[in-house]
Amino acid sequence: MYTQGLDLVPKGEKPEAPKSEEEARLEAAFQRKIDEEIRIEPTDWMPEGYRRTLIRQISQHAHSEIVGMLPEGNWVTRAPTLRRKAILLAKIQDEAGHGLYLYSACETLGVTREELYEQLLAGKAKYSSIFNYPTLTWADIGIIGWLVDGAAIMNQVPLQRCSYGPYARAMIRICKEESFHQRQGYELCLALAEGSPEQRRMLQDALNRWWWPVLMMFGPPDKDSWHTAQSMKWKIKRFTNDELRQKFVDAVVPQAERLGLKIPDPHLKWNPERGHYDFGEVPWDEFWRVIKGDGPCNRQRMEQRRRAWEEGRWVREAALAYAEKRRRRQQSEAA
């Protein structure tokens, strides 16, 4: 579903050590490639900081896709029609797929799948704050598709041109599929908007709860985002968090109006001089609380992931034992 411009440096990470002459030469050549828009591929030389930043960003992105299945999974058995149920299942399956593309891209940087998974399950890895909010009504499923996936697209489209080849290629696949997610969500919202007064109230309530958390998806404001400048120089990132947030607000306000919804922000107003919507301050205290593990559903999400991992253990082991048995049988037949 999406990467948050978190740019959080894990505790204890040390600043770069002084560089040798050889390293400085390699780094200059590396930056020249980036400036010329030549993609970096897994076996190419890259600065340690670039590798670390990418591992952090791609793994956070992958974890977000995987955890992102949980809030939607909550509604599979309660979807109102068979069509909606099939759509929701397909969307959730896509999220699993996106997580797997991204884990694969991350592994090309020299980290193993087990390490990444262990980091998530041990609660050491970050994932998008948005998935720590509950899905209370069916309207939430529409709002997630329209706004959460809409924000994801805003974030991910520039990542298709990310300087790291495997990440950019994964993003191309993901963006293609994400468009379905957004459109089915808006269509669901439209059905509720054209429904009974109660359905319209339900939709407005969902928007009221999700609006600010969705704006947090673009990450902290630029003034608090530590890595932005370096990530922009390395072309891992092409736009800042605040630029993307503004683009998103400008895009979705007319869409909300079309649904007859009111954006829950008294400061939201078109500014003809800027050619953009002005909007109120995002509640950043809440953002930091959720990121640090204290959102409405953080514990539940991690518990569910751990349980799924533990309860699936016998399947993974049985598959491996079966593969081994077959390999041996083939060997003895050949002998």
Partner: peptide, 12 residues
């Protein structure tokens, strides 16, 4: 080439 994946054997 489209990507990679982990699997216990070629059939899976």
């Amino acid at each position: 080439h489209v990507g990679s994946l982990h699997a216990p054997d070629p059939e899976m």
